[in-house]
Design a binder for these strands. Structure first.
Length: 552
RNA sequence: GCGCCCAUAGCUCAAUUGGAUAGAGCGUUUGACUACGAAUCAAAAGGCUAGAGGUUCAACUCCUCUUGGGCGCGCCA
């Protein structure tokens, strides 16, 4: 929170400075952590931006601002100086760091939460894989990102609902039902060839086997229903093992099949609404969405000439439904192979009377697997996809999630199984978790000392003044910056990067500073510091859905 | 053909969204356990950020073009 505080107070000072110069516009300056070769805690580019407006030398403006800072922010800033082409470098007082550490100790896993009560309701929709087979590794990436984004937004105080859109209508359902039926008949001894365009996986055979052991008569069996039931169960289980739980499972069937008193479904009503608004029209016996009006490159069919709705029609109704449930902000995760769909969806949102900002679509790129240094071949068509479950079973939930969350979602991800499986230093998950284990171990050891106090009020934080201790305290406070950045970019990968950096800072501190020092007062202060480290590591890993074991 | 995404160290990727001398991990080389966990730390080597222009006090970041890769372009979902 330190950076935010400094930004706030600087805002006041800059405004005052501009006023004194007779400038009414505001300046959009930033406060940031300088590169590590620079000896300063924070830096701002304010003077350079002002100089441009006032047409003066940045260093002159910087000096004038520094004069105000050193007069007015004596309790916050130890030293302010000009650097480079006009940066103002700031050294904060140690007290600022101690106060922040105390805030962490007090707020514990709530640290960084913003308790504004008027936060938006956000709906995060992710995975939403068709219930035609087990989740594969690509779904896993979407699941990890969607789940972590949800946790981050929740931590920030938003009311977040995680939803899985169950695409249980349409052609693929017929194919699924038929696939099971054919396997069933084959098991009964009928000689039927299995079509190449049907679902090839072994799981289809297993569903058929179950149906046979249940001994129902052929006429009684609803193959579609039975298949979806089994597959959905598997999907839910796989997600649970991956620490992903949804608040709501929304069935497309509900949108298409459930009718009101007048015999109309939600899709009927949505299409009518669009037709009335002039955003849909009839042509060639079909109903079209005029999506080109809002940036799509062609209009799309909503209702086919044979009277059946398309997937898009359901989706319009579904998103209408989302807004009607009171969600102001929708977040959709989509595999990058569906990027062609984005323009259509954005057009829908505009037709429903909302703006681009109300729908945030996160595209995530594909995952490729590497084993023994070789790429693993995958083909959905031949049923050769790698399931999420097999990866979770092989490398563990924590490592799997960490690797999925390690990269920005719009860069392709290479998942190195050899590395993820290593229970050693090369594996970044363990590097971070090790911090928690080390801290825990120190606390255990500290129980043998009788001269230590734990009361926050009595501990002398002033003793935390070495370079390593200051770095660590600053890094802890940067937790809030990471939260803000993750929200702004809608990307949890900043947290994996942050946690690795925090772990790095901690391990360096550990080498230089013995926590259980002979001097009791110092030991107490350092114990408070590593208590803060544990809180941040546990909370941070928690936001990624990753555990923090005490022992490894 | 049209559209979206990507190109950064030998490999996999970051870079606080326009800031200072572009950073991590893996791999390579070297050193450190007789005090809290060596799953760690210290150090070395490795870069014309694909290429060419442009905007800016400042460009890996924004704009244009070129090259090379991934993906999409159905009255499928």
């Amino acid at each position: 929170m330190i950076k935010q505080k400094i930004t706030t107070v600087l805002n006041g000072i800059i405004a005052e400075y501009l006023e004194s110069k007779g400038i009414t516009e505001s300046v959009n300056f930033t406060v940031e952590v300088p590169p590590k070769n620079i000896d300063a805690d924070f830096a701002t580019n304010a003077a350079m931006l002002i100089a441009k407006k006032v047409k003066t030398n940045p260093r002159v403006a910087a000096q004038e601002i520094i004069d105000i800072i050193s007069k007015k922010l004596q309790n916050l800033i130890e030293k302010a100086e000009i650097a480079g082409s006009g940066f103002i470098n700031l050294h904060v007082k140690n007290n600022v760091l101690y106060r922040e550490l105390k805030a962490i100790l007090k707020e514990k896993n709530k640290y960084g939460s913003i308790s504004a009560n008027n936060k938006e309701k956000i709906l995060v929709e992710f995975v939403s894989a068709n219930p035609t087979g087990p989740l594969h590794i690509g779904h896993g990436r979407g699941a990890a990102i969607g789940d972590s984004i949800s946790r981050i937004l929740k931590h920030l105080g938003y009311s977040v609902s995680k939803e899985y859109y169950l695409n249980d209508v349409g052609n693929q359902m017929l194919v699924l039902a038929n696939s099971v039926e054919i396997r069933y008949k084959q098991l009964k001894g009928e000689k039927i060839e299995f079509p190449a365009d049907h679902y090839q996986g072994e799981y289809i055979v297993n569903i058929a086997k179950r149906l046979i052991t249940e001994c129902k008569s052929f006429e009684e069996i609803d193959f579609r229903k039975e298949a979806v039931k089994d597959i959905l169960e598997t999907i839910k289980e796989d997600l649970k093992d991956f620490a992903v739980e949804f608040d709501n499972w929304f069935s497309e069937m509900r949108i298409v099949s459930v009718k009101d008193k007048e015999g109309k479904s939600e899709v009927d009503k949505a299409c009518q609404y669009l037709l009335k608004k002039g955003d849909a029209y009839e042509k060639d016996d079909a109903l079209w969405l005029a999506s080109t009006k809002f940036g799509d490159d062609k209009d799309r069919v909503l209702k086919r000439s044979d009277g059946r709705y398309t997937y898009l029609a359901s989706d319009v109704a579904y998103h209408k439904n989302k807004f009607e449930r009171g969600f102001q902000k929708l977040v959709n995760l989509l595999g990058a192979d569906h990027h062609g769909y984005v323009a259509r969806l954005q057009a829908c949102v505009k037709m429903l009377g909302f703006s681009k900002e109300n729908l945030n679509i996160i595209l995530y790129q594909l995952v490729s697997l590497v084993r023994d240094g070789q790429p693993v071949a995958m083909s959905t068509r031949r049923g050769e996809f790698i399931t999420l479950k097999s990866i979770v079973d092989e490398v563990g939930k924590d490592a799997c999630r960490f690797f999925f969350l390690l990269r920005a979602s719009d860069s392709q991800l290479e998942f190195n199984l050899d590395l993820a499986k290593k229970q050693s230093s090369e594996n970044p998950v363990f590097y971070v978790q090790y911090v928690n284990a080390r801290c825990f171990s120190i606390f255990k050891e500290s129980k043998n000392r009788t001269d230590l106090i734990t009361d926050n009020e009595k501990v002398n934080f002033d003793l935390l003044n070495s370079k390593e201790e200051r770095s660590l305290m600053k890094k802890l406070a940067a937790f809030c910056d990471t939260l803000a950045l993750s929200e702004k970019t809608m990307s949890p990968h900043h947290f994996t990067v942050y946690l690795i950096e925090l772990a790095d800072t901690y391990h360096k501190f550990y080498e230089k500073c013995r926590v259980l020092a002979d001097d009791a007062a110092l030991a107490c202060a350092r114990l408070k510091l590593i208590e803060g480290v544990m809180i941040i590591i546990q909370t941070g890993l928690g936001l990624l859905g990753i555990s923090s074991p005490d022992k490894m």
